[in-house]
């Protein structure tokens, strides 16, 4: 039997997770193909929850598919689309169907997505959601009512090590630890010196940290993220490296960069593992792992 994500986290090994993006529509063939491709190469597969506020096949549906295909799902749950009743209900469903890991996020704003007139819910925030998981584990719901069957989850959250100013983010990180988060998957990091400083700080807390590795596919994408994605800073030397890549080779350069970063993080034991986000290029995750020597 495959070890659970929690077992992997506590084994002391360098943990690798990756991410599955559900489709817009009912054709889940490609998603299932990605699951098949990756499930035995990683310790857990996140499924995004209407990433960037774009309506898609749900996270829980992707997690169920991972279960069916014999993988280890990590359910991403944002607070954007469900109130506290719906969030709790989904945690009950997830647990009853064998999903044991949940990543609690605030969720992107409605305004960045493809249903810009929708109502953003945010009945709970990410810290409250982590506490909700722990409350449901105690056998009671948020209303203080008894549950007929409690949940049990390995609950995690996210942190943005390159946010500016950083201190409010660190305080929130500590609030999430206090709420009961066991693991953190970070926003994409590229500056390993800066990340090492963050890890020196984070090491004082009893949590596992997986560094976020977002695959760079071109110099243009890197510049776009620098300008438009909060908390992501791709250093100029990496942009230059992508620019120098021969025509049609930028993706390979991106794979090399990701592999190289992962190898350094592992070799120097900077953090407890990595979370690889290939955003639409899930089929190259095995190449990234190969480039990292994993």
């Amino acid at each position: 039997m495959v070890p659970s994500f929690k077992e992997a986290l506590n084994s002391g090994k360098f943990v690798v997770t990756s991410e599955i993006g559900p489709p817009k529509g009912t054709n889940i063939e490609k998603m299932c193909h990605h699951i098949d491709l990756l499930k035995d190469m990683v310790d857990g597969l996140n499924v995004t929850d209407h990433q960037s506020s774009v309506m898609r096949f749900p996270s829980i549906g992707g997690c169920l598919a991972i279960k069916e295909q014999g993988g280890e799902p990590i359910l991403q749950m944002t607070c954007r689309d469900r109130n506290r009743l719906a969030l709790q209900a989904e945690l009950l469903l997830a647990h009853a169907r064998g999903i044991r890991n949940v990543l609690c996020l605030t969720g992107d704003a409605i305004l960045v997505g493809d249903h810009r007139e929708a109502k953003g819910v945010f009945d709970l925030d990410s810290v409250q959601l982590v506490r909700t998981v722990r409350q449901l584990e105690s056998g009671k719901d948020l209303g203080g009512n008894d549950l007929n069957g409690a949940v049990e989850f390995c609950a995690g959250a996210i942190v943005t090590p390159e946010a500016r100013p950083i201190e409010p983010q660190l305080i929130k990180f500590e609030n999430k630890v206090e709420a009961g988060a066991e693991f953190f998957q970070t926003q994409a990091i590229y500056d390993l010196d800066n990340f090492s400083k963050f890890m020196q700080y984070a090491r004082q807390f009893p949590v596992k940290v997986l560094a976020g590795i977002v695959l760079l596919t071109s110099a243009r994408m890197a510049k776009y993220m620098n300008e438009n994605v909060p908390g992501i800073f791709v250093p100029q030397n990496l942009i230059d490296e992508l620019t120098r890549a021969p025509k049609g080779e930028a993706l390979n350069t991106g794979i090399e960069i990701a592999g190289r970063m992962i190898a350094v993080l592992q070799k120097d034991s900077v953090c407890d593992g990595v979370h690889i986000m290939a955003i639409g290029r899930e089929e190259v995750v095995p190449d990234i792992l190969a480039a990292a020597g994993l």
Partner: peptide, 18 residues
């Protein structure tokens, strides 16, 4: 924008909103 009670979300950037 999200009415959060327990600190900033990850969408904040240089003191501005996502």
């Amino acid at each position: 924008h999200k009415g959060l009670l327990n600190g900033p979300c990850g969408g904040t950037n240089n003191g501005k909103c996502e």
